[in-house]
Amino acid sequence: MKSIEIGCRPNRRKVLAAVLGSGLATVLPRLVQAAVDGDPAALAFDGDTILLADRGLFVSDDAGQTWTAAETLGNVLSLATHRDRPGRVVAGLAEGGVSISEDGGASWRIFEARLPDGEITAVAIASRNPDMIYASLRGDGLWKSEDAGATWSLAMDRPWLDDAERELLSLASVELETGMGGIWIYAGTEVGLTRVPDCFCRWQDVQPGNAMDALVAGEAPPSEAPLPGGEPILSLASAPSAPEVMYAALRSGLWASQDGGVIWQKRASKAATAVAVHPRDETYIAALLGGILKISRDGGATWIETGER
């Protein structure tokens, strides 16, 4: 697969364009350091447009070659978009609240009926319903809005993993059937991956579809290769064009799964802080690796180096 040639490093200025000169080098070290430490960052595809929230919101219409800074209503910690609703961008704010844009991030609004105060650590839009928005509130739980952010209600408390309640650091609506009349919501916590059916009955481990049958039949459980335990999962993505294809950003690297999160393989060893997948191409991903935005057109097998180094 042929990779496109890009050099991308969004900076604080309005437009980066082809300015990959010395001026940029001076701002890089601080950015890189911040991102490696797990400084919150978020990525999303709005159609072919890439949005990057990394202390400011940046928008690229040319696969990351050039970036434009966008105004926001606060410090954006998390982003979500929907393949069927181009232009809609949902942003979770550090100051609390979820702001919504209907024009690709050019203008934003926050509804009156806000969420309770507190940092919004992750947001997601339901794969089958662009008006259904999920948001996780730090120290609280998972909230949902069925009317595109106008009103909110508590959907579910935080998951209980390794003897404690855990923060939801990342969310993904994954269009795989639960067998309960709906689909899954996957969540990355401080200590690993979990998921809940969208009826919100209970958080549970990701298991192979036939795990229960094997248990009942007394057979060996199907093989699994989970993400490394005890590591925060900073970002999660499920490909709209192939929902079983998933990506996860961890300090240990960028991981990929072809089977809805049962078996994971590492695709990059640099600390990953954000990942997003193109709405129509499950092999086209953008990720922050070691604080640098990189793009892969082959599911993470090869990455486009950005050249600043």
Binding site: G141, L154, A155, M156, D157, R158, W160, D163, A164, E165, G179, M180, G181, G182, P197, C199, F200, C201, R202
Partner: peptide
């Protein structure tokens, strides 16, 4: 019932239409 108990376990959910029992076969 949507809030976890101090034990870490979930309370008993409703079985009427306000709960999620009707999502299960």
């Amino acid at each position: 019932w949507r809030r976890r108990l101090d034990t870490g376990r979930m309370p008993a959910p409703p079985h009427d239409d306000s709960g999620h029992t009707w999502h299960h076969s």
